[in-house]
């Protein structure tokens, strides 16, 4: 394989693989902006996956997508009620929902496909023909074959950005995560927004999970999301909890993931396990580099000044 062909295939793989991470990550951004953290994201995605297949079985791929979203919404609601209203620790609730979701997905799969019956495939995402783009060197084929779900995820990125940055709802959501007590005095209910954010996160996770089997495989297998949910958590932080940053982080991971997949079929000199570890390693390294800047905010200025026009806080750490 020539180098150009090689990287073209890798990039194509990256684009095709990143949709679930991006979609799950978007939901997580809403949740993290209110101060939450969804350790159960993987379980929600698995439930979304199994419901996606079930729904597609009944009415085609888009019914499957809808089913996945609904399933995710329910789990998100559960997490929201448990953490925002019942005030249980959100990490422990997340772990519980993760266990529950993973178990439930296998449960449903086993219940509806008892051992011995064949595993029927369902309709997958509608093919997208973009002959114009295909011609672009290196990334062309990748973009052309990335699939409907990839472009769906891009649309969702833009929508999320619009909501977070240009609606009163988005600003209020961010207010809750930034300073809860102040938000309360302004009449913004942290509980309601945390609950809402959890439901949103669940819906996105369910959608993301549904896209995994419905992209091309057409069947469900236990654990098929393979850690994409946890990766989304990391990538959200790498992307500074913004929708556009998220894409960059997701592509980073998918790039290495795609490389690893290729390494399995071609001998690339180094052990295949190293390539498999590389996406996670790369993500970890980037996390170490950027985490500090995401969490540290500029110190709140509580300085009185002696002149009518004081200078702003010199430390502009964002």
């Amino acid at each position: 394989m020539s180098p150009v062909e090689f990287w073209t295939v890798v990039l194509a793989g990256a684009l095709a693989l990143c949709a679930p991470i991006v979609i799950a990550g978007l939901g997580e951004i809403f949740l993290e902006r209110t101060g939450g953290f969804n350790v159960g994201i993987e379980g929600m995605m698995l439930v979304g996956a199994v419901f996606g297949v079930l729904g597609a079985h009944v009415g085609g791929v888009w019914v499957g997508v809808l089913a996945g979203i609904l399933a995710g919404l329910v789990l998100g609601l559960l997490m929201g009620v448990a953490s925002a209203i019942a005030k249980a620790d959100i990490v422990i609730v997340g772990i519980a929902i993760g266990l529950l979701g993973a178990g439930l997905s296998v449960f449903l799969f086993q219940a509806l496909n008892p051992a011995g019956s064949t595993n029927q495939t369902v309709q997958t995402q509608p093919p997208l023909h973009l002959p114009l783009i295909e011609g672009i060197p290196v990334i062309g084929p990748g973009l052309a074959h990335a699939g409907t779900f990839f472009y769906l995820s891009l649309v969702l990125v833009v929508l999320s950005w619009l909501v977070l940055d240009h609606t009163r709802f988005g600003l209020r959501l961010r207010a809750v995560g930034d300073d809860e007590s102040v938000a309360k005095t302004r009449g913004i209910s942290p509980t309601r927004f945390r609950l809402g954010a959890a439901v949103i996160a669940g819906g996105f996770a369910g959608l993301a999970g549904a896209t995994v089997p419905l992209a091309s495989i057409g069947t469900f297998s236990p654990g098929m999301t393979g850690g994409a949910g946890f990766v989304a958590l990391a990538v959200v932080i790498i992307g500074r909890r913004t929708p556009f940053g998220l894409i960059a982080g997701a592509l980073l991971f998918s790039f290495f993931n795609s490389l690893a997949l290729l390494a399995q079929t071609q001998s690339l000199g180094l052990p295949v396990e190293l390539f498999q570890a590389l996406p996670y390693l790369a993500t970890l390294v980037v996390l170490c580099v950027v985490s500090r800047r995401v969490w540290r905010r500029g110190r709140v200025v509580r300085r009185a000044s002696t002149s009518p026009t004081p200078s702003p806080e010199p430390e502009g750490a964002r």
Binding site: D165, H166, T167, R168, F169, G170, L171, R172, R174, A175, D178, D179, S181, V182, A183, T185, R186, G187, I188, R297, G298, V300
Partner: peptide, 24 residues
């Protein structure tokens, strides 16, 4: 007394927080 502005947002955005319109 405890100032009720969200530090992360601008003054204009803080005003938006309390307004009746949905669009910021």
């Amino acid at each position: 007394q405890q100032l009720s502005l969200i530090p992360e947002l601008t003054l204009a955005e803080n005003l938006v927080l309390g307004q009746p319109e949905r669009l910021a």
